[in-house]
Amino acid sequence: MNDKIETKDQGTGMGQGHVLDLKLPIGWLLSAYGVLLTVYGLVTKKEMYAISLGLNLNLVWGILMLVVGGGFLLAAFLKKGKAGG
């Protein structure tokens, strides 16, 4: 997990700041959920989705979560790049 941590001294004088960049764990978790649901949506049969009004909601929601999770990861990497430069 060490690569996911970003420390920052906020200079508040109130002890060391500890900002773990929360965008990373959120991004990884949601992306992993996205992959899992998308793949599950692709391999499951249509009959399973009778209850969700015929929509393959695992597929749809999986893709959506990939987009949201990817967005968090992208934001985190952009921030890291900025801080590094």
């Binding site: 997990m1 060490n2 996911k4 941590i5 420390t7 920052k8 906020q10 508040t12 109130m14 002890g15 060391q16 700041g17 500890h18 900002v19 773990l20 764990p25």
Partner: peptide, 21 residues
């Protein structure tokens, strides 16, 4: 996440108030 925060918990303020950070 809990484990990776462990090393920041050096003072009372870190533990009780997230180091106000």
């Amino acid at each position: 996440v809990g484990y990776s925060l462990k090393k920041y918990m050096k003072t009372g303020e870190d533990f009780f108030l997230s180091g106000r950070s």
